[in-house]
């Protein structure tokens, strides 16, 4: 029952965000300069932001971007983690040691400086779409290391299991053995890592804005919408400003409810 409800919620949110162009009363960049920071009204269902943009519209459009791209980034990160951590744990020995040193190195790198360097290398005039894609790809590429450690440990435990012994004795080997028997058993871990990454990436995206990366103005994303909450001085006076946060929580929760049952019964 809760699963059905979650699916329904997800379907509604997805549909609404895809239909943003029709549903939104205004464009995400339209500035109602006569009404900045306005409270909710019939005209602006969630009020307006500091420069007079309709928050309801921005939430819809922002959902479209984040809902599509944060899971995509999580997918990239989890795939990399499975590829690097999982294979390392599966192979053991030298490959495992090399991969884990790489992971540790990756985790200990001064990311701030690296990102600054990346920003310095990128052109300032990237098209918004390119920036958005680059941002989430980057999040995906950067976010794999922590998950890789978990997956490596999981694969290592499997390596000497009877399960794999039996599978090898049947003549299975190499990539096929990994893909069929290791990945299927790491699925719960992969799912967990995937879901953990999504909210993290949504928030990281907002923080990347500090370095001139991330979803560029005037395009909205959950990250940029949440960042605006920092400027909200009194939430008790302006509770509607929390709407994007609420959407984020509902969506992430729904995702987890909807997918938790699809894992294999163990």
């Amino acid at each position: 029952m809760p699963r059905k409800l979650a699916c329904l919620v997800l379907a509604l949110v997805t549909a609404a965000s895809l239909a943003a162009s029709w549903l939104a009363p205004a464009g995400y960049a339209t500035q109602f300069r006569e009404a900045p920071n306005a409270p909710p009204s019939r005209r602006h269902l969630l009020g307006t932001d500091q420069v007079g943009r309709d928050l309801f519209s921005r939430t819809l459009y922002g959902t479209r971007i984040s809902l599509l791209l944060a899971p995509a980034a999580a997918l990239v990160a989890t795939t990399l983690a499975a590829g690097i951590g999982g294979v390392a744990g599966f192979l053991g020995g030298v490959p495992e040691r090399v991969a884990m040193s790489l992971t540790n190195l990756f985790l200990s790198l001064p990311w701030l400086f690296l990102l600054i360097t990346i920003r310095a290398l990128l052109p300032l005039n990237a098209s918004p779409l390119a920036s958005v894609l680059a941002t989430f790809l980057m999040l995906g590429l950067l976010g794999w290391a922590a998950s890789a450690r978990v997956l490596c440990a999981g694969a290592r435990a499997l390596r000497t299991s009877e399960l794999l012994l039996q599978a090898r004795a049947l003549g299975l080997h190499g990539p096929r053995l990994f893909a069929v028997h290791v990945i299927s058993n790491l699925k719960p871990v992969l799912y967990a890592q995937f879901w953990i990454s999504i909210p993290t990436f949504i928030l990281s995206e907002a923080n990347l804005g500090i370095l001139g990366l991330g979803v560029p103005e005037p395009m909205p994303s959950w990250g940029t919408l949440l960042k605006e909450l920092e400027g909200v001085t009194s939430l008790t006076e302006q509770p509607w400003k929390l709407a994007p946060l609420l959407v984020l929580i509902v969506v992430v929760t729904s995702f987890q409810l909807a997918l938790s049952r699809q894992e294999v019964p163990l």
Binding site: L124, L211, G212
Partner: peptide, 30 residues
């Protein structure tokens, strides 16, 4: 935030005369 918002308004103003402005916020040293 004041400068970021000014940039957003300027971006919008310049769109009116057909100019595409990209806003890039950078950390101070960069």
């Amino acid at each position: 935030k004041y400068r970021e918002r000014m940039a957003i308004l300027i971006q919008h103003d310049l769109e009116e005369i057909g100019i595409k402005v990209n806003i890039v916020t950078l950390d101070f040293p960069s």
